[in-house]
Nucleic acid binder design. Sequence first.
DNA 1: GTCTATACGCCGATAGAC
DNA 2: GTCTATCGGCGTATAGAC
Lengths: 199, 199
Amino acid sequence: MDKDNSKTEKKPVTQDDVLLASLKLFSEKGYFNTSLTDIKDAVGIKTTSGIYQHFKNKQAIAEALYSNILDSLSISIDDIRRRNKKSSEQLREIVDLLFKLTDDAPEIMRFLLVVNIKEILPEHKNLVETAPFNKITRVIHNGIKNGEIRAIDALVAYNYFFGIIKHTLCMVLSGELSKTADSYQSQAWTVAWGSIIKK
Amino acid sequence: MDKDNSKTEKKPVTQDDVLLASLKLFSEKGYFNTSLTDIKDAVGIKTTSGIYQHFKNKQAIAEALYSNILDSLSISIDDIRRRNKKSSEQLREIVDLLFKLTDDAPEIMRFLLVVNIKEILPEHKNLVETAPFNKITRVIHNGIKNGEIRAIDALVAYNYFFGIIKHTLCMVLSGELSKTADSYQSQAWTVAWGSIIKK
DNA sequence: GTCTATACGCCGATAGAC
DNA sequence: GTCTATCGGCGTATAGAC
């Protein structure tokens, strides 16, 4: 023990370290304003070379980030659908999840909602076409079939509902709405649900 | 008349030519995926030098574009407010304007709604804080004062109302909603207005 | 896995002739 | 206002020693 290494311990940089640092930078400054040099600094290594141990290029970092986020969201939504019967309950819990994430992990939500993924990965699907948001649309679809939600096109209903939710979260994330997401949640839910419910 | 110059006439490139070409490219590929070389090609000159006659750098093009669009929008909104008394009528016409623009000049709306201006011009205000959208908020504020709109925070009302409108337009612009903006307008209006109206 | 060193391409930008 | 020519720099990426 030649030196105090209780905190300064030098552990090798992992993939997750790179992802975490990149997520933060991408969501703060945007993908194109973030250089590998920035990432390397945030991760705490001296050159960018170390990053290429884990990712073949800069795009691959964004890809990994995006698919990680979508996967974990998808799993959460599966879980929600399993635990709840009614569409209203399922949507309610999904909204709850998104608002919580906005307060607890704003970088994730900023990356998901603010960063324009098609500008980074032109080949990638739109948000609506990804697994988790497909599932949300399916929840809405079911709600229409069983009469909870009024009979309009499921995508259009998704559009109204999620338009309100997403805009609320974006305004919180950008600071245009100054309080926590949590404090807007119940109102936003009521209005969003009200916009598609069968009266 | 040594050659046919009825169409091939060589007129000097104007500021507007540059702006128009840039708008198209920015809205299609994004600001960062568009190089001055791309712009120069689209404008039809041989080198990028010509561009510097009109703009001091690439950012300045985006700035000019953005402020032009905001200015013209602002003027239209002033006009709408002058011609209509009730908040509902004013909002109705503003929505009409935005939907028409989406069908007739999608590049403009894509630049306004999809392009993340803060990534290009970090110093710039958020969309809500710009003149035209400030005016929309003021319209809503008046609607609350005179009892057309229910008594909630004006920004929150703006959020609900514009969340639906913006999301609809974005989905049309990205092709996720496949028909023209026009065909979604009356429904979207009804729902958006319904989300803030005093019952 | 991290370092030194380095390559290289692209892009933004300028100088100066026409 | 457009051209030729050219520059500097940044950012990505690789080779190879430790």
